[in-house]
């Protein structure tokens, strides 16, 4: 884990050096504010509810996270630093976890930077701390899943643009899965399966303030699954 922390620190430093991290945080804040205060007309709603805020976050993550994760491996491969990295005493685990944590922490920083929105909310009334807790857990899990998916896609290409587009499409598909049963009037087992696959389906219960271990499990499966697949991808790359 110590080795992973070395990778983590380098990655995070790089995000802020480039300076993609600052750009990400600024755009994220601008977008969230515009949507929340103007498009959703928070003040007109006259309701102290954080759900509109938490239901916006996945949408922005779908568009913005791919921009963050696209360079993770694609750039290393393009620059040739990939080879350097793979010949240093790191295991695949150190590399993948280190990079994952860097992107994840950057997303946490971005979420934290929009904390002014919930704070504005507190001026309007009482909040159930339990609900807010569940909502934050939900978005953290969502962020983790996005970083893992983005990293996996980036490990499969040399081109950052392809990584960006493919990650975004994957995230959109995971988001709109829950719409499919509605569009086709599906019911029963098939609808259940499709719903279960959808990120939204699980995220929404967190957004409502419901802490359900089955929903958490879904995100953990997605996250660890994609991280594991990335490690395998790097490992198998040595036989090419």
């Amino acid at each position: 884990m110590h080795k992973a922390s070395i990778v983590f620190r380098r990655e995070l430093k790089s995000y802020f050096n480039v300076p993609i991290a600052w750009l990400f945080i600024v755009i994220f804040n601008l977008a969230i504010s515009i949507f929340f205060f103007f498009v959703q007309q928070f003040f007109a709603l006259d309701r102290a509810d954080l759900r509109p805020y938490f239901s916006l976050l996945p949408l922005f993550f779908t568009i913005l996270v791919p921009a963050l994760t696209m360079k993770m491996w694609a750039e290393e491969k393009k620059q040739g630093t990939y080879e350097m990295l793979m010949t240093m005493p790191f295991s695949e685990f150190d590399l993948v976890i280190g990079k994952f944590l860097a992107a994840f922490v950057l997303l946490l920083i971005a979420i934290a930077s929009t904390v002014f929105i919930p704070i504005t909310m507190f001026l309007f009334g009482y909040f159930d701390p339990g609900q807010i807790f569940a909502q934050y857990i939900g978005i953290f899990l969502f962020a983790a899943a996005c970083s893992a998916i983005g990293q996996y896609v980036s490990a499969n290409t040399k081109s950052q643009i392809s990584a960006f587009v493919v990650t975004m499409i994957l995230l959109i598909i995971l988001n709109i899965f829950s719409q499919i049963p509605l569009w086709f009037n599906m019911t029963g087992k098939i609808a259940d399966v499709i719903n279960w696959l959808s990120v939204n389906y699980h995220y929404n219960s967190f957004a409502k303030g419901v802490l359900d271990s089955r929903d958490a499990l879904y995100f953990l499966i997605i996250t660890t699954g994609f991280l594991y697949a990335t490690m395998q991808k790097l490992y198998l790359g040595r036989w090419r």
């Binding site: 380098r10 430093k13 790089s14 050096n17 620059q79 040739g80 630093t81 990939y82 350097m84 010949t87």
Partner: peptide, 15 residues
Amino acid sequence: MTGYLPEGVPLYSEM
């Protein structure tokens, strides 16, 4: 035990 300089000297240019 080994030090390696790959062809083309890949480095993290942003550091």
